[in-house]
Nucleic acid binder design. Structure first.
Lengths: 156, 156
DNA sequence: GCTCTCGATGAGATAATATAACACGACGCC
DNA sequence: GGCGTCGTGTTATATTATCTCATCGAGAGC
C-alpha cells in the first residue's frame, strides 16, 4: 500500500483530545466554557457520528440537568467552524476531530452496516476535487467527500 | 482547460428528459405510473435541488389535490435507486438526473449563494475516492462528493 | 461601585425533513 | 372467487434544525 498517502499526526485521545480542542478554540479567539467542554466531551465519547440530539442527551446526563438542542447546535456549529468537530452530511451527525490543529478536506468512510465512520485524508484527491470545481468556475469552500458502504467488519 | 475530463452525453431536456427517465425505470423493471410521472415532472421543473416537500407541493398543484410527503419520499427513493434522480446530501434535496442511462459517481458543486447546483463527472477523481476507500478495507457503495462554495455568478 | 455592552446560555416554540403503520383498491394468477 | 403483490392514501409520529426572546455574568469605561 505504498502508494497511499499517510497521516502521521498525533491522534489525540481522551483528555489529550479535549486539550487539543480547547487549545484550538482558544487559538481561534473563542472561549472554552464549561458548557463547551461538556459538549465536546460528550461528542468525543461516541464511537460513531452522533446527532445533535444524541449529544444533547449525553450532555444532559453529564450535567444532571436538561440541556436543549439549540444550545448544542450553537456549540457544534462553532466547533465545526473552528475545525474542532466535523459534520457528516450524509448522516446529519457530528464527529470530534482528532487533530484540530491541522486543516484537511477530509474523507469519511461511513459504514451502512454498523455506522462506524472512519476518517481518512488524501490531499491529492481533495485537491483534485477542488481543482475540478475551479475548472468549472466554482469557488470551492467546503468539499464534502463521504463514502457510503461497508467496513471490513460488515462485508458479507 | 484541456486537462478537464468532459462529458459528451446527450443531455435530455424537457419532455425528452421525462422519456429517458421512464425508459430507465421500465428497463429497471419498475412501473411508470401517473403518480411517478407527476413526481418526476415536478422534480425536473425545479432549477435547483428540491426538497421532498417542495416537490410534494408542486405535485399537489399539478394534480389539484393534496399529495402527502411520504408518497413523494417513496417515489424519490425509488428514483434514486434507479439513477433517475440524485440526492444532494448536504442539502437534503433531490435533482433529476439528465442521463439516467449512464452510471457515474457524480460531483455536485453547490452554490451557497444562490443554491444553484451543477453536476459534473470526473471518473478519475471518483475512482480515486473508491480506491482510497478500498485501500482502507472499505467496500464503497455510494461515494458522495459535493462541494459547497460559490458559483461564478455569486463570487464577490 | 455603577452601568453599559457583549457574548454565552436558557427556555419554549416552531419549522423542516423523514419514517412508520395500516387501509384500500387494482391487477394478475390460480 | 380467493389470494398475493404492488402502488397509493391517510394519519400519526419521529428526527433534525432554527427562531425569538429572556437572562446572566464578565469586563470596559467612568
Amino acid at each position: 500500500m505504498a502508494s497511499v498517502p499517510h497521516h502521521d499526526h498525533v491522534n489525540h485521545a481522551g483528555r489529550a483530545l479535549v486539550g487539543a480542542a480547547r487549545d484550538a478554540m482558544v487559538a481561534g479567539g473563542e472561549q472554552w466554557t464549561d458548557m463547551r467542554a461538556a459538549v465536546f466531551e460528550s461528542l468525543a465519547s461516541f464511537d460513531q457520528p452522533a446527532s445533535a440530539y444524541d449529544i444533547a442527551d449525553r450532555v444532559s446526563q453529564l450535567l444532571g440537568r436538561r440541556v436543549a438542542a439549540n444550545t448544542v447546535y450553537r456549540i457544534l456549529d462553532l466547533f465545526v467552524s473552528k475545525n474542532v468537530a466535523m459534520r457528516v452530511e450524509s448522516r446529519n451527525a457530528y464527529l470530534a476531530n482528532a487533530h484540530p490543529d491541522c486543516l484537511h478536506d477530509c474523507i469519511f468512510l461511513v459504514c451502512d452496516g454498523c455506522g462506524a465512520t472512519t476518517h481518512v485524508d488524501d490531499d491529492v484527491l481533495s485537491n483534485g476535487v477542488r481543482e475540478r470545481a475551479s475548472a468549472a468556475g466554482f469557488k470551492a469552500e467546503r468539499p464534502v467527500i463521504e463514502v457510503r458502504g461497508r467496513c471490513s467488519d460488515c462485508r458479507d
